[in-house]
Design a binder for these strands. Structure first.
Length: 447
RNA sequence: CGGGGUAUAGCUCAGCCUGGUAGAGCACUGGUUUUGGGAACCAGGGGUCGCGAGUUCGAAUCUUGCUGCCCCGACCA
């Protein structure tokens, strides 16, 4: 993409009203614009990141055996009456009436809808278990939206729902999602720590919040240092295997949000050198809820013995739009955003320091084409902006790698390549035939 | 939903107290000089001062009602 033909309105100054750094940077870098309190338009640069995050989530969900579908944003009130939640949900639910006076609502979540779909279509134990997911916009009419997309009213969420024949089977479905989440967040460049969450009236150990550490996090969290050093990617996982041992590795260390925190246990179980207490942002939440909806909504199948079995359900959410804010909170500096390679809106930014200069233009064009041919997405700054402004803008939008091409360097046969993350610059000789390969390698390593 | 703020150009804000022809910086347009980390100068364009009612010869400014947005709290993916 050539910047001169793109739509990327950046702001030099911090807009008033944006309190936390991720919100400020999202506005300044031209990722989003606010339409109303807690409701945002996604500008091209922001949309690209959103789509990259979605793609990673989708891959990992599919790998774990979940199946994608798409449910609507608008739902009939009827099924919510059936589950008993229509009245319970309160004012957070946006209720709508259509021209025929039929009661509708903008879905805040989809347990009812998926349960209806599943029970109407599945009648035999042979079609279980299944985990279905979709990535769809939700609306919760929060009393007080804030922190930009971190607590918006409209938000994009990946929500998955599992249907199993028994609690023990449901535990397996839960474990698949648990591991899938670890992998997903890690691929997004985040250290997400699973923390035991309150399961409410159902009880048990099958509810976890996935928390990333950030100074501006909404709640206080406590955990063992070892959890920050673990990886779920460096093993080859077969989701059909018994995942219990891996679950065990991840859940044996102390990790709790402030609601679940037990100071005495923390002191006793974790050596003080290993104790981490920090602030955290919740980016995912998974839980098993048993027969809560399936019973109320008669979601049953016939077992091998011909008897009806009420299915066991679980649901698994990732706040997709919130993740942009969370990633920025966890990865930025005073100059702007620092995107992890996996979600950056472009892989490489090429700065043409002097558009109109023949040698510079031609070198930029060569890089642009060659890198694109190597599967790297490029943003070429070919605008007439002054060099200083270009550097600032490129740092602000946080592309992982910058290639700086100007007449001065070219005179000596060099271009400069800079890592956004480390700030490290390195000069490369343009006569090297494999310069693109070199850049590709550097980019993959995150320079 | 309680408490507190705020609303003036695309953005950041001044002007309001003490009523008298709408301002600055940045951004934008044209020009000259610049040109490797947010340049300088010249000339321009851009506003129903959130909306309504009132007071007044006259309201961005005073009074009043409403609305939006923001912050703190309670609530939450």
């Amino acid at each position: 993409m050539r910047l001169s033909q793109f739509f990327m309105p950046v702001l030099k100054e911090t807009p008033s009203g944006a309190e936390i750094v991720s919100h400020q940077l999202m506005l300044r870098a031209g990722l989003v614009r606010q339409s109303a309190a807690g409701i945002y338009s996604w500008l091209p640069l922001g949309l690209r990141v959103l789509q990259k995050i979605e793609a990673i989530i989708r891959e990992e969900q599919n790998k774990a055996g979940a199946i994608e579908l798409l449910m609507p944003t608008i739902q009939p009130a009827e099924i919510w009456r059936e589950s008993g939640r229509y009245d319970d949900y309160g004012k957070e639910m946006l209720r709508i009436t259509d021209r025929h006076d039929r009661e509708l609502l903008y879905g805040p979540t989809n347990e009812e809808l998926i349960t209806q779909i599943f029970r109407d279509s599945v009648k035999s134990y042979k079609d279980c278990p299944r985990t279905l997911y979709h990535i769809q916009w939700k609306f919760r009419d929060e009393i007080r939206p804030r922190f930009g997309v971190m607590r918006g009213r409209e938000f994009l969420m990946k929500d998955a729902y599992s249907f199993d024949l028994s609690k023990e089977e449901a535990r397996k479905s839960y474990q698949k999602m648990f591991i899938s989440y670890l992998r997903t967040f890690e691929r997004l460049g985040l250290k997400a720590i699973p923390m035991q969450a309150d399961t409410g009236p159902i009880g048990g150990d099958l509810s976890h919040e996935f928390i990333i550490l950030a100074d501006t996090g909404e709640s206080e969290v406590f955990c063992h240092k070892a959890l920050l050093e673990k990886s779920a990617l460096d093993t080859t996982i077969d989701f059909d295997d018994d995942l219990s041992p891996m679950m065990e590795q991840w859940t044996s260390h102390y990790a709790a949000t402030e609601e679940m925190h037990d100071a005495t246990r923390f002191e006793k179980e974790v050596a003080s050198a290993d104790q981490i207490s920090a602030r955290g942002i919740e980016v995912g939440h998974i839980f098993y809820f048993g027969e809560k909806y399936t019973k109320a909504m008669k979601c049953e199948v016939q077992g091998p013995d011909g008897k009806l079995v009420t299915l066991h359900g679980g649901s698994y959410g990732i706040g997709v739009s919130r993740l942009l804010g969370a990633i920025i909170e966890a990865s930025h500096d005073e100059d702007g955003i620092i995107w992890p390679n996996s979600v950056a809106p472009f892989d490489v930014g090429i700065i043409n320091l002097k558009p109109g200069d023949e040698a510079t233009d031609s070198m930029c064009q060569q890089f642009y084409k060659a890198l694109q041919d190597h599967g790297l997405d490029c943003l070429l700054d070919d605008t007439k902006e002054r060099p200083g402004g270009k550097f600032k803008t490129m740092d602000l939008i946080g592309l992982p790698t910058q290639i700086i091409v100007g007449p001065k360097g070219l005179k000596n046969g060099i271009v400069e390549i800079k890592s956004r993350k480390t700030g490290m610059r390195q000069e490369l000789e343009t006569k090297e035939l494999d310069i693109v390969t070199a850049i590709t390698a550097l980019t993959n390593k995150g320079l």
